[in-house]
Design a protein around this nucleic acid. Structure first.
Ligand code: NAD
Ligand code: NAD
Lengths: 234, 234
DNA sequence: TTAGACTCGCTATATGGTTATCGATATAAA
DNA sequence: TTTATATCGATAACCATATAGCGAGTCTAA
């Protein structure tokens, strides 16, 4: 994996309802999706697991298992229908229904996310940003209004927004999460490198860039600096 | 749970040298690091696995195993020395030696990364950006020069830069990766949602935001729209 | 000084995801 | 029409990681 860091249960203690699909499989589905959309654009209508696996670097069995979770059924010899498979993944992931989201922390990273039009293709629409910096409140960033954090919980309730994105400094993240929970937000996408304390039923996913960085620098260090460690390594 | 997605073997086929630390453990180390730095700032000098686990949502055994990979040794009853533990993690991850990096794709996301000062605390210094857009070449973004992509491989060799960051659109990512490999870059941090084809010995980590998004929307969909699926779920 | 409790470190087991194997089926070519 | 081949779907073996259990050491407090 790139090492997936997947981590997979990086998030925390056990879930009440274990998911019916392995987390790593879930994480691979978007990759297949990107690949398939590209195929479709090139006019290819049918595809086999062996082909997908060959192109993406997985063994065919794994691809087949992953795809089976979406409920698709293929035909022997010919494989799957590309458009059907794309629809199957999208439906399975809930990318047909748009999730509206609030983003908090209109800084470097927040601005980048606000400007990412393509999210709407994947079921995500960021409808507003929030901040505490008076300089930022009132601005429009990538056609989205930056509002005061005070308004968040009230607006989230009134607009039935269920998804929150946190791109504030680490110190502020917990307070922001509390505010989101107060507003009835169900799921949080957290870019700050802290473990959030939220009620059991709230879904939290951390996007920890430092985890990836750690893997990279560990491997680079191992490769360059330290043939000494080589022998220590198991 | 958060569920980390990192998946960890999201990246691809097997590595030649299996790492001496499980990928999930590697991904958790930065979390401990953040937590410990916070503790140190608050003047706490000793810490136990139970305490760490309680605060971060892991069971003590797992914390202990993870930390053991860094080579730290604790004392019964008192636990670990906080500053010693921080140093141990930093050394293990190679965060003491700075890795210089080139970033390609000075767009939304690239700009955010270029502006992130704190990376230098974690062994990463982005020294220059590259782009193909004539409007961008020649600009300075967050005190870093934006150069033409043509110069990349030559400069990478001359400056001995070993790490490359890709924040271009998906279509351009493969060509950029090829250019990086040509320049002798050893490790690539890829934010574009594509599988890169690179020689065996190149380290690639994908930061696939869509994977996280997929998990979130799958869970939200499961929660809201479809009690029907509830019974299908295993 | 001594009893007690807490925590580390090691070894063993359990869980879950990945990989291999096998039979069935549809397509294509003979 | 028949035969060969590729692929799917399901089951089973395998492996990595997470969890549990146990013994040993050290600090605290009586
Ligand atoms: N930018 C990156 O490349 C990058 C990389 C890795 C991790 N991160 C993480 O992402 C987060 C954001 O990073 P950034 O570079 O965008 O930071 P930033 O400083 O550019 O932006 C943070 C924003 O949050 C706002 N903010 C501060 N306190 C707030 C509060 N209590 N409520 C609401 N808003 C508040 C600030 O006004 C600012 O607009 C950080 O936690 C950082 O560790 C960023
Ligand atoms: N911005 C986000 O929030 C976000 C979220 C998820 C994924 N991503 C991914 O990150 C990548 C970058 O996203 P973005 O929003 O920053 O895009 P962007 O369009 O803002 O920036 C892309 C930059 O790459 C440059 N570029 C294009 N072709 C190039 C080439 N061949 N060589 C060098 N540079 C080239 C462009 O000139 C532009 O400056 C995309 O692959 C996107 O899918 C971004």
């Amino acid at each position: 994996m790139v090492i997936d860091i997947n981590l997979s249960n990086l998030a925390g203690p056990k879930l009440p309802n274990p998911p019916s699909i392995p987390q790593p499989s879930l994480a691979r589905l978007p990759q297949y999706h990107h690949y398939l959309v590209d195929l479709e654009a090139r006019g290819i209508t049918r595809i086999s697991c062996s082909q997908i696996g060959g192109d993406l670097g997985y063994i065919p069995v794994q691809v087949r298992k992953d795809l089976q979770y979406t409920g698709i059924i293929g035909k022997p010899k010919t494989g799957y229908s590309v458009p059907e498979l794309i629809r199957s993944i999208e439906t399975f992931l809930g990318w047909n229904n748009i999730n509206e989201a609030f983003l908090v922390g209109a800084g470097n990273l927040g601005t980048a996310l606000l400007g990412h039009e393509r999210f709407s293709k994947f079921g995500l629409r960021i409808v507003a940003a929030f901040d505490t910096d008076p300089e930022k409140i009132g601005l429009w960033i990538h056609e989205k209004a930056v509002l005061s954090l005070d308004q968040l919980s009230d607006l989230a309730q009134r607009m039935s927004v269920h998804l929150g994105i946190i791109t504030t400094p680490a110190e502020a993240a917990q307070a922001v999460a509390d505010e989101m929970v107060k507003g009835g937000i169900q799921a949080i996408w957290n870019f700050a490198p802290v473990k959030l304390r939220v009620p059991e039923n709230i879904i939290v996913h951390n996007e920890d860039l430092y985890s990836t960085l750690a893997s990279l620098s560990w491997k680079l260090a191992r490769r360059f600096n330290v043939p000494i460690q080589e022998k220590e390594a198991v």
